[in-house]
């Protein structure tokens, strides 16, 4: 099947050129994989100067800084940074609850995942995509040549299924031992929570980033009255009577729930971003994630 050479729907060429200049900000000590364009602190063979150190026996004479020797009469060698690759794990929640809201959460998450994967592939990093529930899986790919196939994979991925997110994360942590940058794109609307799963991932050495995607209607419901709610994912039903006071109570409940998640993430040094879908992906990438996840 020929790969699509078209950019991901909705992405302009200007945006892609801008994204290509970004690099992920990784946690120090995150294990790399192979040679890449990601600079690490430890000594390497790149052209990026890092530091000086005292000459030791056996050091390559080509690395001696003779100017320093002339001034100080001591031998110093130049240390350069190494360039490594890393694995970007994109965990994309495709449960039915994601296919809801205006703007649609699923479309928003796919576009955001496509942008992040594009940044990683542009820098010769490895990208793997795991849809949750796990019917769709993209093995680790690397390089710019994989970008069209990556876009096509995301584009064709449909939403559907029910998800126990925490169990799915635990399973992912168990089966994927190669640590890397793990970005979760989910609405986290699961009664059992996500904390256990995130802990498992951290225990495996992943650098976890939590992108919490919610529709505006989920944060601030506008439909009031006597309602019979039917959940789109589990088909659970609930009869409620929403007046302005009850709606305010619901907003407080959402706020507390979000703060619980944010507090957990803060405790475990997991960057947490609440992303309502009424923002554009460009704004999220260029205003919210730059400086924290991207640099």
């Amino acid at each position: 099947m020929p790969l699509s050479t078209e950019p991901f729907p909705g992405f302009s060429e200007a945006l892609l050129r801008r994204l290509a200049r970004f690099r992920f900000r990784l946690r120090p000590g995150l294990p790399g994989r192979g040679v890449g364009e990601h600079l690490v602190r430890k000594g390497g063979a790149s052209v990026e100067f890092s530091d000086f150190r005292t000459y030791s026996y056996g050091d390559d004479f080509r690395l001696v800084d003779w100017n320093s020797f002339a001034r100080l009469d001591r031998l110093f060698v130049k240390v350069f940074r190494d360039e490594e690759g890393f694995v970007l794990h994109l965990l994309l929640d495709r449960s039915r609850s994601m296919d809801w809201g205006k703007p649609n959460k699923w479309q928003f998450a796919k576009r955001l995942a496509a942008a992040l994967g594009y940044v990683a592939l542009s820098a010769f990093n490895w990208v793997t995509v795991q849809a949750l529930p796990d019917s769709f899986f993209l093995k680790e790919r690397r390089g710019r040549g994989m970008i069209p196939m990556f876009f096509q994979f995301l584009e064709r991925m449909p939403p559907g299924g029910s998800l126990d997110l925490s169990a799915a994360l635990e399973e992912y942590a168990r089966t994927h031992v190669q640590p890397g940058l793990l970005v979760m794109l989910t609405d986290a609307l699961t009664p059992r929570g996500v904390e256990t799963g995130i802990k498992r991932l951290l225990a495996r050495g992943h650098q976890v980033v939590f992108l919490h995607i919610l529709a505006p209607e989920e944060i601030n419901p506008s439909t009031l009255g006597d309602l019979e709610l039917e959940e789109v994912e589990w088909r659970d039903r609930l009869e409620v009577s929403l007046d302005s006071f009850a709606a305010r109570t619901y907003r407080y409940t959402v706020q507390n729930w979000r703060r619980e998640l944010e507090g957990f993430c803060l405790t475990h040094q997991v960057p947490y971003f609440l992303l309502p879908t009424d923002q554009t992906v460009e704004d999220v990438l260029l205003k919210r994630l730059v400086g924290v996840l991207l640099g």
Binding site: S97, W100, D187, L229, V232, R237, L238, A246, Y250
Partner: peptide, 17 residues
């Protein structure tokens, strides 16, 4: 008496129920 409303979740409503 009650209008049907499809929502993405009910557990948060359950918390505020």
């Amino acid at each position: 008496r009650r209008r049907k409303q499809i929502v993405s979740q009910v557990f948060l409503y359950l918390r505020a129920r």
